[in-house]
Design a protein around this nucleic acid. Structure first.
Lengths: 124, 124
DNA sequence: GCGCATTCAATGCACATGCAACTAACGTAC
DNA sequence: GTACGTTAGTTGCATGTGCATTGAATGCGC
């Protein structure tokens, strides 16, 4: 790929990401008191119907966030009562995270906003 | 666009942006002591061959950064001697930013890295 | 059992970012 | 000329992030 084309692609990628992440961040915050990272975590947790929840590590593979950032995002969600952390019995270094009932409700309320903003921003 | 397709597109966008911005950030930092935002600013300044430089406002339109973040990015570049700020004579609220010789050299050294990382990451 | 490297997650710290408030300069109305 | 609204850019502050370190638990070699 010629350099100039690649750079153009990068700028376009960057532009789209900035527009969408910014729109998501403010819409989710305004309407549902959720940051984008918080929503992403909730979304993965609710999406994984395994009732025991996901390990931090599994979350980390799906969400692009450093390990420390993920740890703190989950901590914020826990403080707000949206997820719970449980020690993993078989490997006591591990931590299972699963949504609370309040977490499921908040996610259900926020999901339409998420979808709508994505459609609007990517479409327009 | 069906919701699920849009969400998939967003996740893919997010994944690509994370991979590329992360790779750029670390490569530029390691090899040229430049953050990604700093390089972007330099790149626009050198690209605009107007020898008087660009106004902060013009930079802001091209780079996706809040006004305050841009102001501080330029301040860092100035502190490192890579750009200079000059008051605009016709409108003394405005600020012209233009690269110094050192800034041009640093940019020239970093540009191949930038292009290479983009090609490698977008290609692979 | 006893070390020792490895893995998982949390925390101290530095830093870049965004928002809101602020300062300075411009332009207009009068 | 004075007052007022607007625009350009900077700064105080709170916050989210990454890197490196730490602490705990695991597994392996012996």
């Amino acid at each position: 790929m010629p350099d100039e084309v690649a750079v153009k692609a990068w700028r376009e990628l960057s532009r789209q990401y900035a527009a969408l992440s910014c729109a998501l961040e403010s819409a989710l915050q305004d309407r549902h008191q959720l940051g984008m990272s918080e929503f992403e975590v909730l979304d993965r947790l609710v999406g994984a119907q395994d009732c025991t929840g996901l390990r931090m590590q599994e979350l980390g593979e799906q969400i692009h966030l450093s390990q420390s950032a993920l740890s703190r995002t989950v901590a914020r969600l826990e403080k707000d009562g949206l997820v719970e952390r449980k020690l993993c019995a078989s490997d006591r270094r591990g931590v299972f995270v699963h949504p609370t009932e309040a977490g499921r409700e908040r996610h259900a309320a926020a999901r339409p906003t998420h979808r709508e903003v994505i459609n609007t921003t990517l479409g327009g």
